[in-house]
Nucleic acid binder design. Structure first.
Lengths: 128, 128
DNA sequence: CTCGTTTAATTACATGCGTAATCTTAATTG
DNA sequence: CAATTAAGATTACGCATGTAATTAAACGAG
């Protein structure tokens, strides 16, 4: 069935972010989008793109003499993987300790709190 | 000032967990605690312990012919680092999307929800 | 058709990690 | 005291990753 999650490295995820914002894009555009914010060499960015191709995280469709790249791995799916990994590795798989941690250690904006409350209300609503 | 966070690998964190539960402990005890659950070779566990020493994540006090190991990196601190890393890398540093993600994708137990509500109440209480 | 240019593919190389095996040294036993 | 053991230190080795440089291929310019 081959359900192995695609492992994306840190640097690679930066490339994915660019593609998640817009796709398809030529490598040139991806390079342009990342040069400044990352300070990476153009070659580096192309390497990462290629590795992502190899991993099946992005696809490439020939467009004339170059390729247009699109993400295959969905952002949601990746966030899911990473979150679960944190949860399992660091918080023993239990959500409550993680939430407690965030509430104690991360500055929650008023908006965060409001958002949270809305979420909880919605969840409880759905349960009854 | 040397404020670089100590980077703990996945495997290494398993060793830390043992020390966080109880310290100090001899390597023998640590090995004993991990053999079964991890399936690692004794040598592997000792290697990890040694790497942690090298990283300054644990300390060793000589006790006769062997050492007793204690964690220097605090569990809270590590959870903090890892959480922040996830938040920044995967959720653009914003808490709300992460929480939204968890509420949508992770099964929250009734207890989790209750816990969450309590947290929010406490936070809002403190704010007004 | 040949050259240069642009993009993609291949190769590189140090470091970290997972996973041990080997070597060394200090204490234990006969 | 010599030999054995047990713990720690050193070395190993392949794969992933960060970070590129080198090589090849393909298409447009002349």
């Amino acid at each position: 069935m081959s359900n192995k999650p695609i492992a994306i490295s840190d640097a690679e995820s930066r490339v994915m972010e660019v593609l998640w914002q817009q796709a398809p894009q030529a490598s040139e555009d991806i390079v342009a989008a990342l040069l400044e914010p990352t300070g990476w060499h153009e070659k580096t960015i192309r390497t990462l793109l290629n590795r992502l191709l190899g991993k099946g995280a992005v696809s490439a469709q020939k467009d004339g003499r170059r390729y247009l790249y699109s993400p295959l791995l969905r952002r949601e799916q990746w966030q899911q993987q990473e979150s679960r990994s944190l949860l399992d590795r660091v918080f023993g798989g239990k959500v409550a300790p993680l939430l407690a941690h965030f509430s104690q250690h991360e500055k929650l904006s008023t908006k965060d709190v409001a958002e949270l409350r809305k979420l909880i209300d919605a969840i409880e609503q759905k349960r009854r």
